[in-house]
Amino acid sequence: MNGAVTPRWIALWPALMLGLFFLVPFGIMISVSFAQRDAGGFYQPGFELASYARFLAPFFARVLGVSLAVSLGAAAICVLLAFPFTVFLASMSRKVQTRVLVVLLSVLSLSEVIIGFSLSTLLSQTAGIGNLFYWLGLIEAPRAYTPSLFALMTGLCYLGFPFAVLVLYAPVSRLDPEVVEAARTMGASAPRAFMGVVVPMLRGAIVGAFILVFVFTLGSYLLPQLLGRPEHWTLSVHITDQAIYQANLPFAAAMSVFLMLVAMALVGLSSLAARDGGAA
């Protein structure tokens, strides 16, 4: 075809909007991370590394450690559960797939605040499983399982699981089912065909999903507050806390820039892994 159907100038409007409302905010945020703190809750233009210097404090190292550990754990559990789920789902009829996708998308779109509320109700003393276990005679008295690290991990997995399935769904459903059938005809048992053929072919997709879920849960802000104890607060909670309650925008900005670099590095890694894996 000679030339394109769309004229070049249609890029103008999206470029303007994204430039003004996406690039500029990031630019400002980066410059604020080097600015001076202002007691009034705003910032004084300037250049200092004071905010970044605070990363060296043991407090920050602990927050970062907690954030990373919690998210890594949640991402691992999610992908472990989601991978077989997705492979099984992809072998179902279109009708079943559509219905399951509707459920997953509905859960995925649920606000964190609703997930937090629902899970804390489920894990509470009066309405949830504590009550159920007591009724079944498993425990001696009704008890609450929240706030706790267990509750927080449950919440993050609840948040991350649909995301993991949807990230895996495209590459998994593109996998040629005949490859597995070929392995079966050559004498591989079903689990063996799964571990020996399906998993290696989708290695890139699995690594990619792991990292994306990791970044996704890293951004969780409400769940640590609703389901965890203060020592489980993640970097996201501290960023908001610094920006709004401690009125220290430069420090919040510096933490954001740091988090962004971590996330970008990981997403870059995942796209490398995906390219490597071929099937993704």
Binding site: F21, V24, I28, M29, S256, M264
Partner: peptide
């Protein structure tokens, strides 16, 4: 256009707030 979903939303949120 894809970036907001590849980054923890708190980053975009702080960026918008400061902006």
């Amino acid at each position: 256009g894809m970036a907001p979903f590849a980054l923890p939303p708190v980053i975009s949120a702080l960026g918008f707030m400061i902006f």
